[in-house]
Every structure is written in C-alpha cells, then in structure tokens.
C-alpha cells in the first residue's frame, strides 16, 4: 500500500536532460510560489485590520522601480528557460543520424511495431539499450499519441503522415507504453510496454525472430506481407514490391519506361519538375507511392499509377524499408 512511486523511472538519455529541466523549472516554481504563498499569508496576517501595532505610513500606490524589477527578473529567467527547453525539444524531434529505426502504426485500439529485420510486435516494443532509436509513427484511423513516460517522449500518430521522434534507451527494463491522444471507446486500453534489452540480448532476441517476447505476429494490413519473422522488413518490402508489380518498371534494367532510380531516392535531395528540391525521406516515398503525381522527379514523366487505397500502412513501411535498404547497400549504409 505505501510502496507507490512518486516519480517515473528515467530510462533514456534524452529523459535525463528533460528531467533536469523539469526539476529546475519546478525549483523555480517552488521559489516563486513560496514567495507568493508565504508572502501573502505573512502580509495578510501582519496587516490584519485589528493589528494597530504595525507601521502603515508611507504606503505608496505604485513604484516604477519595483514594477520593472518584477517584470524584468521573470522575463530574463523565462527567456533562459525557453532556450534550454527548445534545445532539448530539438534533440527528440529534429532529424538525427545513426539510428535504429522502428515503425509504429497506431489503430483503434492497438499499437503495431515493426523492426527492420522483420520482427513485428503488437502493443510491445522491444529496443536495444544504448542505441539511438528513431520511431516513425503513423495512424490508420484517428489521432493517437505514442507515449513512453520513462523516456519522457511522446509523439502524435496522425493519419496520412509520418511523425518521427528520436531517443536513446539506456536502462534495460520494462516500461509503460500509452496512447495519450483520445481515440475513442477503448482509448485507455490502447496500452502496452516497452522492453529495453542489453544490446547483446537484443541482438539474440532479434535473431530468434523476436520469439518469447513479441506477443503476436498477425498482420494488420494483410496483403502481400504475411511473411513476418523470417524475412527482414526490407525483404518483406521487396516481396510487396514484386507483388504490387512495381518491378515491372522500377529496378528493371529492361524496362521500356523511363523511371527514376529508386536506389538513389533515400537520403538524397530530389530536384522536382517545378524546380523545388525535396528530401528523399519517408514522407516523400510514402507520397510518391500513394500519389506519384504530387512531386514529380525532374526529367521524368508522370507515368506511375497512384496506389492510394491499394497498399496498407504496413506495406508502406515495408516498401520504405526496402527503398532505404537499396540506398544503404549502394552507399554503404548510414
């Protein structure tokens, strides 16, 4: 009964920084709060109406100097805090390199996670300790939010677009995983856990195909990607690639159609027909599959049919992993 926690575990590198910021702000809040709370009580008691022993002379109504003081001191502190917090925010949301990428798909009411080597987990996410992780998050239906309090990170899962966040788990253990954006009847059951394993155990776990820990391997999207476990995500992507007939044009040296070289898509700056330059990232690949005409590669025609409504979110992440792997193998990995 009396053994209940008052602070969450801190199990990520970024979480340490955010915790420190949290406690510094809390400290400031306690200082200012105490000044006001105890100040008010002290003043209200000391200057109570029936206390005639106090000196009430020279009670001025305003004073520019004190006004400036209590405007400028909080202002300076606020600006410092603002900068510090913005920096930490950039650490978890701004793009970084050298990560282990997991794809997270939210739907009413479960989390579906995919590892690069093809292991799938439902409502569980197993991660290695000590490595930077990039979680690429999307939703199939309504808004969800992927929240891991022990890492102090959270990101909304928005249908139709990828959101990413970065963090580095440090302490092996089991942690809560929540959906924090209200998503309907079973919102509070859209929970799970994040399991952090030491690097070696994690590798062993991955090689075993995630057995023992991953709770389910059922496909959410169905379709061509029913292989899970034995194939890597990229390999599954390759299968999907073939099943959808993409290889008729792409990756086909004999193709009659002139298509962009998708082995160079990932990670490059892509010049578009209208002169804009876009990044070859998950969002671009996703859009180019679903709605190829939106951003046409310079020097190519708009020939590819849109796959809107034809591929599931799960297949999309497989295809993205496949296209990533093409770039990785041609440039030597990232």
């Amino acid at each position: 009964m009396w053994n209940f926690p008052l602070v969450p575990p801190t199990a990520s590198e970024e979480g340490v920084g955010i915790s420190i910021l949290y406690w510094v702000i809390t400290g400031l809040a306690v200082i200012f709060g105490s000044i006001v709370l105890f100040g008010v009580i002290y003043l209200a008691v000391r200057y109570r109406a029936d206390n005639n022993a106090v000196d009430r002379s020279n009670a001025v109504d305003s004073d520019l100097r004190v006004e400036l003081a209590w405007t400028l001191v909080p202002l300076v502190l606020a600006l410092i805090m603002f900068g510090w917090a913005a920096k930490l925010y950039a650490d978890i949301y701004a793009p970084r390199e050298g990560y282990y990428e997991v794809f997270v798909i939210g739907k009413q009411w479960m989390w579906h996670c995919q590892h690069p080597n093809g292991v799938r987990e439902n409502n569980v996410l197993t991660l290695p300790a000590g490595r930077l992780v990039k979680a690429t998050i999307i939703s199939q239906d309504v808004l969800h939010a992927f929240s891991i309090p022990a890492f102090r990170v959270k990101r909304d899962a928005v249908p139709g677009r990828y959101n990413a966040m970065y963090f580095t788990p440090t302490k092996p253990g089991e942690y809560h995983l929540f959906c924090t954006e209200y998503c309907g009847t079973k919102h509070s059951e859209m929970i799970g856990k994040v399991i952090v394993l030491p690097e070696k155990e994690f590798q062993a776990w991955l090689e075993k195909g995630g057995q023992g820990l991953a709770t389910a391997t059922t496909s959410m999207g169905g379709g061509a990607a029913a292989g899970g476990g034995t194939l890597t995500l990229a390999q599954q992507g390759e299968q999907t690639f073939k099943a959808l007939g993409c290889n008729a044009c792409h990756m086909n040296p004999n193709s009659a159609v002139k298509v962009p070289d998708i082995t160079k898509t990932w990670g490059s700056d892509i010049m578009l027909e209208d002169g804009r330059v876009v990044k070859g990232d998950e969002a671009y690949i996703r859009e180019s599959i679903l709605n190829p005409g939106a951003k046409i590669h310079k020097g190519y025609q708009n020939l590819m049919p849109p796959y809107q409504g034809q591929v599931s979110e799960e297949q999309l992440v497989q295809l993205i992993a496949y296209i990533q792997s093409l770039a990785d193998s041609s440039t030597g990995g990232n």
């Binding site: 793009p95 990044k279 990232d281």
Partner: peptide
C-alpha cells in the same frame, strides 16, 4: 514544415 533538414541538424 519542409524546412526541417533531413540529414540531421
């Protein structure tokens, strides 16, 4: 939104 760099800051 598109200003955010892709290759890391």
């Amino acid at each position: 939104r598109p200003w955010e760099p892709f290759h890391g800051w």
